[in-house]
Amino acid sequence: MKIAVCIKRVADSETRVKIAADGKSLDEAGVKFILNPYDEFAVEEALQRKEKAGSGEVVVIACGSQSSQETIRTALAMGADRGVLLEATGVPADGLAVARALAAELKGGAYDLILFGKMAIDDCNHQVGPMVAELLDLPCVTCVAHLTIDGGKGTAEREVEGGMEEVEFPLPALLTADKGLNEPRYPALKGIMAAKKKPLEVKPAAFGAAGLEILAMTPPPERKEGRIVGEGAAAVPALLKLLREEAKVL
């Protein structure tokens, strides 16, 4: 099985967001960067599929600055075979531009499966995977939480409001990973050592024109100071009164 996984370097989820001097981006000073958690599920799935098939190749592709090499090495340490960095000084806010760059690299790669995370936890765009599928005209299922593949056909389950949607698709296909798909492995020391010697190719990214312009990044509005209505069960009638008459939500 030949599998490609698109991975992104993102600020750790515990980051305290400070806005940079330009007023439009994250102040990266002191921020820890990690492999996007949903992409970890995608890498793990690729490795398990290859192991099950008994042969194949797992290629990881990241688009970003030179520092994304570190993210690629993390995936290589987990067990991926080789990496490709599509280098750019910054990643555009427009997911379609990112999708174009990734699609250009994936095109003609003869992959049985192309895996993405459902969402990058920095821009929360939730879009690059299905956009690449459109650009490459591949069947695509997003937010896959459960997957079975049998021959040239797959069945996936994805969470929707009030239940799990069951979806059937033919291979080759592009899937985006949700939590629950698997338990990503930690890179072992042996893997980390081996990763250093695995091939990592660097090429320029070709985004094309972007159609989104960031005007400003701001902190979320502060919630105004609330109040303690009272203590214990005796405060319930007062709370209900406030919800009805002041907040008007009941």
């Binding site: 936890i121 989104l212 979320p220």
Partner: peptide, 11 residues
């Protein structure tokens, strides 16, 4: 963005 820890104004 950043799980609601910031807001982005985009044109």
């Amino acid at each position: 963005v950043y799980a609601g820890k910031a807001l982005l104004k985009v044109k």
